[in-house]
Amino acid sequence: MSQNLLGESVDAVVRTIFDDDPGELFVVNPSGETIGELVDVANAYEGEVPSIRLLGDERTLKDVTDDFLVASTAATLVEDDALELRTVDCNARSSMLVTADRTVALVKVGRLVGGITTDDAEFAETAYDAVADDWEDSEPFTLRTPAIDRVRQTLDAKLGTDVKADFQAILASMENARGDGDGLDGVTVSLLAAAKNRELFYDISKWGEDVGVASKATFSRTKTKLEDLGLIDTEKVPIDIGRPRLRLKLADDRLEDAPPAELANAAQSVLS
Rank of each mutant, 00 (worst) to 15 (best):
A258P: 03
R198C: 02
L271A: 10
T188C: 09
D40K: 15
G47Y: 10
I148V: 11
L85H: 01
A169G: 04
G115A: 08
R254A: 07
R178T: 13
E175N: 08
D20H: 15
P22V: 03
T73D: 10
F18W: 02
L97Y: 10
G181D: 02
T224W: 04
A195L: 03
E46L: 14
P30S: 04
A264T: 08
E262Q: 12
L69Y: 07
L250F: 02
R243E: 11
E235D: 10
T16N: 14
P260D: 05
M96Y: 01
G208E: 00
D228G: 13
T76C: 01
D63S: 14
L6K: 08
A71C: 01
L229T: 06
E139W: 06
A124T: 04
A42Q: 12
V237Q: 04
R247V: 03
K164N: 11
G160E: 00
G212P: 04
E199W: 06
L184N: 02
S205E: 05
A75C: 06
L184H: 02
S138N: 07
T188P: 03
K223R: 15
T145S: 15
E227G: 02
V109Y: 09
K223F: 00
P50E: 10
G212Y: 00
V151M: 09
I17Y: 03
L54C: 10
D257Y: 12
F219N: 02
I116T: 08
F141K: 00
N4T: 05
D252V: 01
T234Q: 09
K158A: 15
R152N: 05
E262Y: 01
L248S: 03
R150T: 12
L200H: 06
L246T: 11
S173G: 13
W135Y: 13
D233E: 12
T224H: 13
D89H: 11
K108E: 12
A214P: 09
V113I: 05
T34E: 13
D21M: 07
G160Q: 07
T222E: 07
D210F: 01
N29V: 05
Q168C: 07
S173E: 13
V213K: 01
T76A: 06
D156C: 09
D137Y: 13
E262T: 11
G36Q: 12
A100F: 12
E175F: 07
A266W: 10
I232A: 14
T34D: 13
T16K: 15
S9F: 04
R152S: 15
D233H: 04
D67A: 09
R247H: 06
D252W: 03
N176M: 07
G186S: 10
W207C: 05
